[in-house]
């Protein structure tokens, strides 16, 4: 099967200004920026599940927000199905590829056409549902926003299918309820169902299980996996948890301080990590078996402040194998195997 890239990220940068204190303004100290994403490039094939793994402050969530056009990149571009997402999300596409005529649509219609094809699942199922809407209102709302010209019974069929596909069957049993009557796992299913009614092609799942109990996590992950099988959806799964990523993703991009340091097939990255940061992450992930306790490579200190990114290799201050050269040279990607690359001078 040949893989068609549906998403291409080219040299993405995203910076956020730091609000200066009054005293800093008086002192005219220079404006500072947070380098949330600092030069990220990768492609995602149609129907692929990609894990974006990193600690807080690695920029993984920012990448996801930019992919969906909910934030505008500072530099670089993101192409979704050949169109520039930041133009698309603001309704400023001018020409259409293959004469699909997107560029001729009105601004609002352009925005809606992107939203319909790319959706998001959020981290906190207790926060991402409006507490004053019923489950029905939550799941039918996307259909109303997009005004797909469905008749009442078609809408009901779609909502029912989305809820039942997400394991909330029978749907009638749930749709008159409010979110606070459901458990965390059920709420997260409602969030997924709300994204699915639009039948999107791309789903960005931002830490969808980190707030859930262990016994329910596998459920949601299995659900995402089955959606890929049933609907050929492309999924970007951001997480800090290597183990859940290892369970159901095809490829894995490990991020550190706004940059992808290693990218490759999930199993290969987890079994034979090449970048020292990935190696450390893999070694400290708790293994649910005391017989398999391993030598942990514990990095000292914490992820540096993304306002002042270290010179050379951004990982060098915490790297167990760094040399003087690493302080000076920003490492290029080294190809390890056909699909596996890592940014380290020591490979």
């Amino acid at each position: 099967m040949e893989k068609i890239p549906i998403l291409r990220i080219e040299d993405l940068y995203k910076q956020f200004p730091v609000t200066r204190k009054f005293i800093d303004r008086i002192k005219r100290s220079p404006k500072q920026v947070v380098h949330a994403v600092d030069g990220v490039s990768f492609t995602v094939a149609q129907g692929e599940i990609l894990a974006l793994v990193g600690e807080s402050g690695s920029g993984k969530t920012t990448v996801g927000m930019n992919v969906l056009g909910l934030q505008v990149p500072t530099k670089g571009r993101i192409l979704f199905d050949g169109h520039d997402v930041s133009d698309w999300a603001t309704g400023r596409l001018r020409s259409g590829k293959n004469g699909d005529g997107l560029g001729r649509l009105s601004r609002r219609k352009q925005i809606l056409s992107l939203r319909r094809r790319a959706q998001m699942v959020f981290q906190d199922p207790y926060e991402s549902l409006n507490p004053r809407q019923t489950i029905w209102e939550i799941v039918v709302e996307p259909l109303e926003i997009h005004n797909l010209g469905l008749r009442a019974n078609e809408k009901e069929a779609r909502v029912r299918a989305a809820l039942e596909d997400c394991g909330l069957a029978p749907a009638d049993h749930f749709w008159s309820r409010y979110p606070d009557e459901l458990s965390g796992g059920q709420r997260q299913r409602v969030v997924v169902a709300g994204a699915l009614v639009l039948e999107p092609e791309l789903l960005v799942a931002d830490e969808p299980v980190s707030m859930l109990d262990v016994s329910i996590r596998a459920d949601i992950l299995t659900l995402l996996q089955s959606l890929r099988k049933a609907r050929d959806i492309t999924i970007i799964y951001t997480t800090h948890d290597l183990a859940t990523a290892g369970y159901f993703t095809d490829r894995m991009a490990v991020m550190y301080l706004g940059r992808v340091v290693e990218l490759g097939p999930t199993v290969e990255v987890l079994k034979e990590p090449r970048h020292p940061y990935t190696q450390a992450l893999v070694s400290v992930a708790p293994v649910p078996n005391p017989r398999k306790r391993r030598q942990r490579v514990i990095l000292q200190g914490e992820v540096p402040n993304p306002i002042d990114i270290p010179s050379g290799c951004r990982f060098h201050p915490r790297c167990p194998i760094a040399t003087d050269e690493c302080k000076k040279t920003d490492p290029p990607y080294v190809e390890i195997s056909a699909e596996h690359e890592a940014a380290c001078l020591k490979i």
Binding site: S183, A218, T222, G246
Partner: peptide
């Protein structure tokens, strides 16, 4: 037994996970 099956093991990437049906 089921709890252990529901917990992903980083040493065995790609292995099957089975969550526990129902709620506590």
């Amino acid at each position: 037994q089921r709890l252990l099956k529901a917990f992903p093991d980083i040493a065995e990437p790609g292995s099957d996970l089975a969550s526990i049906p129902g709620n506590p």
